[in-house]
Simulated scan of single mutants.
Amino acid sequence: MKTTLNDITRIATFAAIIAVLGIPGAVSPFGMAVPITLQTLGVMLAGAILGWWRGAASVLVLLVLTAAGLPLLSGGRGGIGVFFVPSSGYLIGWVLGAAVVGVIVHAGATRPVWWRVALGTVVGGMLAIYAVGIPVMAAMLGLSLGEATIANFAFVPGDAIKAALTVALTMAVWKAYPRAFVTPRQPRVEPTPVSVR
């Protein structure tokens, strides 16, 4: 898989977008240990627009820079310590989530279709992230998986709204600037050589 300068630019751009979405801060409903942020919206958009590996790479770049100490998470959080708290599983789940969104939205498609974006954001942007985040939260808080899953229900309404926003924004970007999308490359057809006698 060859990485071009264009790929690097797209990946860096979406890492920055996800970071910017953390500026408004986070909300912890009912005193929960895991905050709700807008950054998941950026994760969903990265997968939907960039595809699976570029979307996942943009999240990975953000997390590596965060681990290095940059305050890129909501509320200006940064440093290696953010990966040793109850919400750390959700952060790692972002990488998987962006990849799954990208696979569903882009697999065999030459343009985004609203129902594929919706399916991708629910399966990747929500379920895949929960699949990593819930067990880690349960382990760190000493909860059973059932208890952690019930606690996770507080995130579902907000994440559903973010999924709907991702669908609307993805389709709007496609109409306004389709070049922003990475679509499967069509095989190049070489001209048939003509012999001259």
Rank of each mutant, 00 (worst) to 15 (best):
A163V: 10
L38W: 11
I18D: 08
V156R: 01
E190Q: 10
V34K: 05
V132R: 00
R54W: 06
A15H: 03
V196M: 11
V182F: 12
G125N: 08
V20Y: 03
P178K: 13
T192N: 09
A68S: 15
G142S: 03
A164T: 06
I92G: 05
V132H: 02
A151Q: 06
F14L: 13
A180L: 14
L60C: 07
A131L: 15
T3N: 12
G97Q: 04
I134S: 06
F155L: 07
A56E: 02
V95Y: 04
G76C: 03
K2G: 05
R188F: 15
T3V: 15
G158K: 01
A98L: 05
L127F: 13
F14M: 14
P71D: 11
V34E: 12
I17F: 13
S74T: 01
I80E: 05
I11Q: 08
L73T: 01
A151P: 00
A172P: 00
A154V: 15
P187C: 13
T66I: 10
G124S: 10
E147V: 05
P71W: 09
P187V: 15
A160I: 02
T192V: 15
L45R: 01
V43R: 00
G93P: 01
T3R: 09
V156A: 11
G133E: 12
T40N: 14
T37Q: 02
V113Y: 11
L119Y: 04
P184F: 12
T37C: 07
G76K: 01
E190C: 04
R179D: 13
V136L: 11
I8G: 06
G55S: 05
I80R: 01
S144R: 02
V196F: 13
S88H: 02
V100F: 10
V85K: 08
M126T: 08
L91V: 12
V100Y: 02
V101C: 08
R111T: 00
P35H: 07
T66C: 09
G89K: 02
V122I: 13
A164D: 11
G55M: 06
I11H: 08
F181E: 06
A48D: 10
F14I: 03
G97W: 02
I36E: 09
S144W: 00
A168S: 06
K162F: 04
S74K: 03
P157I: 11
G75N: 05
T4R: 03
L5F: 09
M1R: 12
I150H: 01
A168I: 14
H106K: 04
D159Y: 04
A46C: 08
A48V: 07
G120K: 01
V34Y: 05
N6L: 15
P187Y: 09
L63N: 04
G75M: 10
A46W: 08
G102S: 03
P135V: 05
L65M: 14
A12F: 14
G22M: 08
I23K: 03
A118C: 06
K162R: 03
I134C: 07
E190D: 15
P135L: 13
L50Q: 04
G146A: 05
T149P: 01
T110I: 08
P112S: 07
M1Y: 09
A46R: 00
L65S: 09
L50C: 04
Y90P: 06
G42P: 02
L141C: 06
I49S: 07
G108C: 04
V20C: 11
G89E: 08
S87I: 02
L5T: 14
T3E: 15
V123A: 15
L41G: 02
G51N: 10
M44R: 03
A99I: 07
A57D: 03
L41Q: 04
